[in-house]
Design a protein around this nucleic acid. Structure first.
Length: 488
RNA sequence: GGCCCUAUGGUGUAACUGGUUAACACGUCGCCCUUUCAAGGCGAAGAGUACGGGUUCAAGUCCCGUUAGGGUCACCA
């Protein structure tokens, strides 16, 4: 047994941001760990020095923290299996690569890039089914190797794959997968710069960190046999592999930047709630038995199991994400929404508009079922923050009649008479005016809406007048009477 | 091209180890509600489970083949 408790890891390479596919992978790892009282480890796979991006690790951890997927062990949270950054574990990889060389399961290779290049071209010309290293350096004598090393010749260490052997492993989502060593190249384990490749590093680390379940994206499936070979050569027990289906663009190709946002921070910045994003991404490739769709993180933990993970790719459907965001918005505590709105407001053209929390809460209440994002309150109902600058032409056409100005004038007079009106008072006054003039209430309601909001839709008009207040309502009625002329 | 994976309405999923008429959700459309826009409620269209064989009393579920899509074939992860 690898460990008496389940241990899983999320092992991203810090290339700049957290991909939503990565978020899904991290989430499944997290859910699996929480469900089984296991440990969720974060390991940074920074062995490619050419692709180092300044600040990438911080951004990645920021995104992970924002999403609420907190890790039990990782950089800055050292457990007993650290360090958790592969660049800090070089001596460990060296030790095992030496062992593999001594055993004959790996060997030094001094071939130049040029030789490899021409080799590949030749093989391509011969239309070989697959280009592979020709094991040229495997046949170097001990003395030759020693001499090359002593001369300081640049080298890599390659896995010595013996051809003609089956490699079989069981995958928790793909079931049994079979390969033969015929199609496996003598993979580089240690690069010319002394850093390990992913293949060596992840096997060594997963073993040393006592990872019981390797849950990762399907793009790793075809390199898994190399890892199996490594486990076998080192005499280590295999973890359970679980290869997750890919996230897809609407055209079913692998989710890419070209066709939309892929970074978690993009979604955060657009105003998606983390719980909506998490909920959505959880449903991509997995579904609970009870078919429940709106799930908080605890619901997900309760229901999650690896054997319910699908094996086919899932299209990232923004419409559904939006719907989930609306649903979660409605379930969010009002004070939390208030905080979010204040944040958006501070970042908007209305940052100097001072409204009390009570007013803001009323605005939220009136807009909640009309928005997808909190910021829609600002962009979609600016009339709560400033008087309308213009009036919707089509609404004027439809609702502003010859007598509208006169009716509003009467309404204004009524409003001026009432003190500290509540919502119902605005309505009562309006109905009185309607009755007196023997017109339907709609004949005044619609012009009033246009006058106070400038548009034809939105919350109940008396909610609006109640929120902006008596003085402002009267001012806006006056302005409307002044500016709006009936369309003929 | 080799190898590997996959295939349930447009999309995401459900259908216990094969057993009613394939369910739910998003989206679309319609109706109701209503002072508007939404939300909500109700309803409809949309798949006979990629296609073709086979096993079985019985197949979306098991097997084979075909097709299509995807992944992967680096001193990247």
């Amino acid at each position: 047994m690898i460990s008496d408790i389940y241990r899983v890891r999320f092992a991203p390479s810090p290339t700049g941001y957290l991909h939503v596919g990565g978020l899904r992978t991290a989430l499944y790892n997290y859910l699996f760990a929480k469900k089984n009282n296991g440990k969720f480890v974060l390991r940074i796979e920074d062995t490619d020095r050419n692709r180092l991006v300044e600040g990438a690790e911080e951004k990645l951890i920021d995104s992970l923290n924002w999403s609420g997927l907190t890790f039990d062990e990782g950089p800055g949270k050292e457990g007993e299996f650290g360090p958790y950054r592969q660049s800090e574990r070089l001596d460990i990889y060296k030790k095992y690569s030496d062992q593999l060389i001594a055993q004959g399961d790996a060997y030094y290779c001094f071939c130049t890039h040029e030789r490899l290049q021409t080799l590949r071209e030749e093989q391509q010309k011969q239309k070989l089914p697959q280009a592979k290293y020709d094991k040229h350096c495997l046949h170097l004598s001990k003395d030759e190797v020693a001499k090359n090393l002593a001369d300081g010749k640049s080298y890599v260490v390659r896995l010595n794959v013996k051809p003609g052997l089956p490699v079989v492993f069981d995958d928790a989502v793909k079931n049994r997968v079979e390969f033969t060593t015929e199609v496996i190249d003598d993979q580089v384990l240690i690069k010319g710069d002394g850093f390990p490749t992913y293949h060596l590093a992840n096997v060594v680390d997963d073993h040393l960190m006592k990872i019981t379940h390797v849950i990762r994206g399907e793009e790793w499936l075809t390199s898994t046999p190399k890892h199996v070979l490594l486990y076998n050569a080192l005499g280590w027990e295999l973890p359970v592999f679980a290869h997750l289906p890919l996230l897809l663009n609407p055209d079913k190709s692998k989710l890419s930047k070209r066709q939309g946002d892929v970074a978690v921070e993009d979604y955060r910045d657009k105003g998606y709630l983390k719980k909506a994003l998490i909920n959505f991404v959880a449903l991509l490739g997995w579904g609970p038995q009870d078919n429940q769709e709106i799930l908080a993180i605890d619901d997900l933990i309760e229901r999650f199991s690896l054997d319910r993970v699908n094996s086919s790719g899932a299209v990232f459907n923004v419409d559904k994400l939006n719907w989930l965001n609306e649903q979660h918005l409605k379930l969010t505590d009002k004070n939390e929404l208030l905080d979010l709105l204040k944040l958006e407001l501070a970042d908007s053209e209305y940052k100097d508009v001072n409204l009390t929390d009570t007013k803001l809460l009323m605005i939220i209440e009136s807009m909640l079922e009309r928005i997808t994002f909190v910021k829609d309150i600002i962009t979609g109902s600016s009339y709560f923050f400033e008087a309308p600058k213009e009036y919707d032409e089509t609404v004027i056409q439809k609702q502003w009649k010859e007598n509208s100005a006169d009716l509003l004038k009467q309404l204004k007079a009524e409003y001026e008479k009432i003190n500290d009106p509540v919502k119902e008072d605005y309505e009562k006054s309006l109905r009185t005016v309607a009755e007196k003039n023997e017109v339907g209430a709609g004949k005044i309601i619609h012009p009033l809406r246009l006058a106070v909001s400038g548009v034809g839709g939105g919350p109940g008009v008396f909610d609006i007048t109640n929120i902006i207040g008596k003085e402002e309502t009267i001012k806006r009625i006056e302005a409307a009477i002044e500016k709006i002329k009936p369309a003929n």
